[in-house]
Simulated scan of single mutants.
Amino acid sequence: MYIKKILWAIALIGLAVAAYFAYYVYSAMFEPNTAFNNEKAYIYIPTNATYDEVREQLVPLLKDIDKFDALAERKQYTSNVRAGRYAIKKGMSNNDIINSIRINNIPITVVFNNQESLEKLAGRVSSQIETDSTSLIKAMKDEAFLTQNGFSNYTALGMYLPNSYQFEWNTSAEQFRERMLMEYQRFWTDARITKAKNLNMSQNDVMTLASIVYEESKKKEEQPRVAGVYVNRLKLGMPLQADPTLKFAAYQLPEYQNTVIKRVLNKHKEIESPYNTYKYAGLPPGLIAMPDISAIEAVLNYEKHNYLYFAADAKRVGYHKFAKTLSQHNANAREYQRYLSSQGIYN
């Protein structure tokens, strides 16, 4: 009788322990364990991160980090951390959280507009994904990559079309570069390549001219007409005489660093540079900025007309007056110069 009581006591204790263990396992796995009020919280796990680094981000987000640790160890997550951007939803259990940060790497939308240089592009992109600007610049300027894909340091900027793109946060510099090459190649359809050939231009030539068109006019409806002027000049062998190329050439010189040229002067036309399209006919060696897609399309679908000149319109900011003769153009240019002087803009 006494032995039976002992056995019953042991059995009851065993059941109690088993029940507690079952409850502990259940609570560790399936009870809500989030400590934030927003609908979602995000963690960013760097490449080659350790579990301790992940844990550091989770501590302020969870009610009970110890139970999470126990389950993470049991599910072998502690030795299988994966880089990326992950969402933790309010009310998630530890089991749900581990599953989420193991497989649900959430893409982000990387956006860049008309950056003036590869350096500025790298800075813009590195603020949105894990890789740093130094790594991006190195990848973007890699000579072997550029040569293999038909680019040079002068034309490399043209490979990056301003838009918004989906990327995983932990995208490397090389992965970013390869994706942009793919987008560039996708943009250059057979139809667009044919139009470039009809202009007697390479794809790089089109991008270079588009960069000038874009810097001349941000008005999409006017860009095909501006492009038409430059196409007409190229066909006649006339210098492009594009003011934005003079500014670009000037900004490469020490004396123009950290300055803004608001008015192109005769002294700028004397700058010795292959980008000085007043001195040298034809296209400059490469882009002066990242053109908008509208400017690229404007070159490929330029307006056919007889204009050879244009000057900024003093009465319609952002627009231009077009002319077929030099005398008409000079009159338009004088009108705009008077406007600049009236505004106190002399350089």
Results as ranks from 00 to 15, higher is better:
Q166S: 12
K219G: 05
D205L: 07
Y230R: 04
Y230V: 00
K247F: 00
I212H: 14
G228K: 10
Q148I: 05
A173N: 02
A156L: 11
V213P: 00
V213G: 00
Q223P: 08
M238K: 08
Q257K: 14
D190Q: 14
V264Q: 10
F151D: 00
S152G: 06
Q166D: 11
A191T: 14
E183D: 11
N232S: 05
E215V: 01
A249G: 14
Y184G: 04
L234Y: 02
F176G: 04
L240T: 01
F248P: 14
Q185E: 10
D190A: 14
T194R: 05
Q252W: 06
S152I: 08
L234V: 00
G158Q: 06
A249L: 13
T171Y: 08
A250T: 12
T194P: 00
T259F: 09
D205I: 04
K267S: 13
T155L: 06
K235F: 04
L157E: 04
E215M: 08
V231N: 01
Y160H: 09
A250Y: 10
K220W: 01
V231I: 15
Y160S: 03
N232C: 03
W169Y: 09
R192K: 15
N258D: 15
F248A: 01
P239S: 03
E143F: 02
Q241E: 13
S172N: 11
K269L: 12
L161R: 12
L181C: 10
F187R: 14
I212R: 00
K218Q: 08
Y154R: 09
V206M: 11
K218T: 05
Q223A: 06
M182W: 04
Q223R: 01
Y165G: 04
Q223T: 06
R192Y: 15
M201L: 10
A250L: 03
A156R: 15
S164E: 07
P224T: 04
F176Y: 15
A249T: 05
E143Q: 15
V213Y: 00
V260E: 02
K220S: 12
N198K: 06
A196H: 04
L209C: 13
K197E: 11
Y251V: 02
S217R: 05
K197N: 11
A196C: 07
T189I: 01
S152K: 08
L265E: 06
R225T: 13
L181V: 11
P254Y: 06
G228L: 08
Y256A: 07
R186P: 12
Y165W: 13
V264I: 13
S172L: 06
L240I: 02
H268S: 04
F167N: 12
Q175D: 14
N163A: 11
Q166V: 03
R186A: 11
K218M: 04
A227I: 02
N163M: 13
P254G: 11
N204Y: 01
A227P: 06
